[in-house]
Design a protein around this nucleic acid. Structure first.
Lengths: 107, 107
DNA sequence: TTGACATGTGACCTAATGGTCACATAACTT
DNA sequence: AAGTTATGTGACCATTAGGTCACATGTCAA
């Protein structure tokens, strides 16, 4: 469990991997080749990053013939949230974040 | 803003730093010396970790004489959540996590 | 003001990480 | 069957990150 934690946080520590999650957040079920075209990096680098994300459970894959489809799994993200934000604090924090977003939209 | 992101995720990538956040989650306003006594590491290592957490905005400090009191700031954590979990998905995920916790409590 | 306490800085070493490449397997297409 | 497409593996190198230490500053208490 602690090792799982570690894999998740280590996986999130790299900007390229976070960008890959962003891509899957906007549209799921993408292949390696498709993701590769969005990133300034060789296929091998991207494959390595996807493997890290998969082993962390942040990305789930489904094979379809020779293609490998990638999906974002939000559960580990929610667990990070729950680790340091209890139900009571959550209300205050969300209010604060909403306020911050509202102010930024105005300008 | 992207640099801020990077600092937050890099800060969370280390197990010692996550443990320090856990300590501050249970009780805030701790000093360096106090936190040091909870960790198998020299004072210098802990100080370095706290600096990383502070620069990431995950920890906020208040000086009191020669002491430095540390507090957990949950806002960056919430922002991580909001980045990959939209309002619609949130309901499904929280239900899933609650179910998982319920099942684990039964055993 | 003298000594103990709390924290800060910069150098240094080792281990882990990100990225590329040569090579390899498996599956569609014609 | 042959060529093309999609992905997998292991070695390799440059860079970053975690941890310790010698040294230094600032604060409290007697």
């Amino acid at each position: 469990m602690t090792d799982d934690d570690d894999r998740v946080f280590k996986a999130l520590a790299d900007p390229t991997r976070r960008f890959l999650l962003d891509l899957l957040f906007t549209r799921e079920g993408r292949t390696l080749t498709e993701l590769e075209s969005e990133v300034e990096m060789t296929r091998f680098g991207v494959a390595k990053h996807l493997k890290v994300l998969e082993e962390a459970g942040l990305v789930v894959v489904r094979r379809s013939g020779r293609e490998k489809l990638h999906f974002l799994n939000p559960v580990p993200i929610r667990l990070i949230h729950d680790r340091w934000i209890d139900k009571y604090t959550e209300r205050h924090v969300t209010a604060l974040v909403d306020l911050k977003n509202a102010l930024e939209d105005e300008t």
